[in-house]
Structures are given as C-alpha cells and as structure tokens.
Amino acid sequence: MAEMKNIQGIVFDVQSFSVHDGPGIRTLIFLKGCPLKCMWCANPEGQRLFPEIRYHKQNCRGCLMCAEACPKQAITAAANPQPGSAMINIDRTKCESCIEMECKDACPYNAMQITGKLMSVTDIMKIVQRDRPYFRNDGGVTLSGGDPFVQSDFALEILKACHSEYVHTAVESSMFFHFDLLEKYIPYIDFYLCDIKHMDSEKHKELTGVPNELILHNIAKLAKIDSSKVLIRVPVITGCNDDEENMVETARFAKENGLTRINLLPYHKLGIVKYEQLGKEYLMPEVETPDQEKMEHLRQVIQDQGVTCVVG
C-alpha cells in the first residue's frame, strides 16, 4: 500500500447524507478551483482556487469593524446604503492577495464569511470515517468542486486514502485536462460523473469558456477502459443547450462510446445569491427552470436514440 501523504487542500464544503451525486448515501467533498467558467455555475465559490470572502448583507449593520481590521484597506462604507442593499464596498482586487482575512473575525454579526478552508487528507478522512457506517452497501465519497483535479495531488491523496479504506469513490470533473494527467487517478476511481455541456465546441466555448474536444476525448477514453463506470450528465440550461439536436448529438456520442445512460439535470437558480456575496457578476441571462414537460420531452429524445435517460 502506498504511503499516504498528508497534504492539504482548500475545501469549500463537505456534505454528508448526499444522495444526488452518485449511488447510495454519500459524503460530498467540494474542492476549490475550476478550469471552466460556466455561465450558470451554481457553485461560483468553487471557481477560484483560493479562499474568498462571502459578504452576507442581511447580517451587516454597517459598523465598519471589518474596514478597521482589513490589512489591505479593501473595505469602505457604501455611499448611500438603502434598506436591503450592501452597507459596504469591497475592492475584491485587493482581497485576492489577502491571506489574513481579519475582517471575518472582526465582524460581530457573521456578515463576513470565508469560503474555502485549508484541510488535510487526515481531516477529510476523519469525516469519511464518521460517515462511513451510513454508506452501507452502495454509498461512498464523491469528490466535487469546482473541479477536484485542479488540486491535483490533494485529490489524488484523498482518493488513494479512500481506496485503502475500501470506500467507494466517485468524481465529478469537467474532464478538461490532458489525459496523461488523468491517468494516475484511474485506479482509485469507481465512478465518473462527466458533464457534457454542449456537443458543439464553439457553443461550448461560449457557455463555459473552453472548447469541448479535450473533454469528449477524455470521456471516450475513460469509457473504453470501463464504460460501466462513466455517467454522462447534461445540465439542461434553457436557451443554451436545451435543443433537440444537442440532445441527439449527446446521445449519439454516448452510444458510440458504449455509454448506456445519460442523466439530465434541469437548470436551477439556487446559486444566484452567492454571486452577489462573492462580488461576482451573474452572466447568465434571466431564464426559467425548464418545466417537467420539457424535461420529459428531452428525455424521450434521448431514449429514442437507444440510450437510457434519467431526469433529476
């Protein structure tokens, strides 16, 4: 057994009793950092690698204790705060190089919260051990993010540690990496959740910031090794990738590569509030969550191609 390296990484959330990202009852570990920048991203706090401040304006009372404590002078009072609006301005460019984040402790109201916490593999495994009895026969650990492979060594060590403890592992990745980089993970992963956001590379780039060739190539290669371990997921985003043609293409791609199942996930808006907290702009135009009828139709389109399709 390879010796475990107790390295550290930056984790922005750990969720136990998760049932939507892999089989059984699972513990989800969200690692920070992502090579993609999807317009609809529901976990924008996962995009950047380093810890960030999430400002909860509803807690803020404008006392400016944070401004006083800030070593970068990044915080100033808002000019004309209205009820319900932010009481302070944060210059995020100054924050980027901050490691102290003293504003968090200075705030008496928990308005300044940090997303992204330094954790070691041992810390993670403590939680896995805690949750493990609940995994029973089919559950396990899912590494998610962001994209867990951005923190490449950290992810690898977690996966290795899980396997040496006989814990089932799943990974939710963008797959936007050179395959040589992915290879080292393969022995330690039992299930891949791979998003295909669009089959057209141009469109893919528009929506996510990167083209799709590398992603599709990687999925095909993983499928060749063991197609039963690979699940294609498509986030269905109204007006972006929800046309029949894209579904048909996705289904064909799956079929060509021996993948028999596609999971459609309807777009939701639960992440929008986080953009404001992070001082980020939500670039997605205002669209509605696709309704049940629409999802059922797309499911049928994929089923017609001879690929099993599950919604939700």
Binding site: D190, F191, N263, T308, C309
Partner: peptide, 20 residues
C-alpha cells in the same frame, strides 16, 4: 466500528441513477 467492506473486484455494473 467497521463499515461495509466493498468488494472492488466484483463491483456490480452500476446502474446509477436508476430510472423510475
């Protein structure tokens, strides 16, 4: 407290997520 031990050699083909 040991959890369920997973048999990696004989993992059944995963059908996840299951259809209705």
């Amino acid at each position: 407290m040991s959890g369920q031990v997973l048999d990696f050699e004989n993992l059944k083909t995963l059908k996840w997520p299951p259809t209705p």
